[in-house]
Amino acid sequence: MTDLLLLHTSPVHVPVFEALRDRNHPGAVLRHLVVPELLDQARAEGPESVAPALRGLLLAEAAPPGTPGPPGTPVLVTCSTIGAIAESLAPALGAPVLRVDRPMAAAAVRAGRRIAVLAALGSTLAPTGELLAEEAAGRPVSIRTHLVAGAWERFEAGDTAGYLARVADAADSVTGADVIVLAQASMAGAAGLVTSPVPVLSSPAPGLAAGLALRSAA
């Protein structure tokens, strides 16, 4: 029985979440769905444009006919660009849907008022800022966003080390912040390279824990 369905827009996330499962949640059963074209469309036409395709995909995958277990398998969406759209589809799916960065955003607004957001992809900045404001729930927060120049090109070229190094360098250059948020799940490895004393938050570990908790709560 699948405990959690993970929707990715890049295959690089699969081993990351498998490793987190093995380390922190042994025995949990994950199923991975990788659909890069959803991010391509969201970048070209806006996140709202993927809603019909995403709804059909998740309706088929969260409880595919003939599979064991109850319907409504929880879904964790690891792409920050389309996370809000995916969450909005939960009522239609009859299953909980969680964007991977929501637990991280909740932790960020608890950590301090001045939040710096780093992203390698411009389409991620607005959804992340909106999520932080939502999690702040009216509390005063100052959100500054930073696009890490040249990072996404390295990611697309498969230069993971170069990608993470650029993100870490950008984090080290942040000033006047209480907490730094790494907006994309693919950036998580940069947290260990940062030398700044400012806390750096990433989404995969808390996101996976929260996603698996959805099954326990069901």
Rank of each mutant, 00 (worst) to 15 (best):
S202A: 15
G192H: 07
S196T: 14
S202H: 14
A168E: 05
R166I: 08
Y163L: 05
A210S: 01
A171N: 00
G162K: 15
S203C: 06
R215C: 08
P206T: 06
R166Y: 11
A183Q: 07
G207I: 13
P204Y: 00
A210T: 02
T195D: 06
G207V: 08
I180R: 01
A185Q: 13
A165P: 12
A161F: 13
L193K: 11
A188W: 10
G176N: 09
T160W: 14
P206N: 04
A170N: 05
D178V: 11
V174H: 04
S202G: 09
A205I: 06
I180H: 00
G162Y: 15
V174Q: 10
G192V: 07
V198S: 02
T160K: 15
A168N: 08
I180M: 01
V167F: 13
D169I: 01
V198F: 01
T160G: 13
A209Q: 10
A209H: 10
G211S: 00
V167P: 13
V200A: 09
M187K: 09
S173Q: 11
T195S: 13
A210M: 02
G162P: 15
V200T: 10
D178Y: 04
T195M: 10
T175A: 05
P206C: 04
A190V: 05
G207D: 12
G162A: 14
G189K: 12
S186K: 09
A170P: 09
V200Q: 10
L212T: 00
A209N: 09
V198R: 04
T195C: 08
D178P: 12
G162S: 15
Q184K: 09
A205Q: 12
L201Q: 10
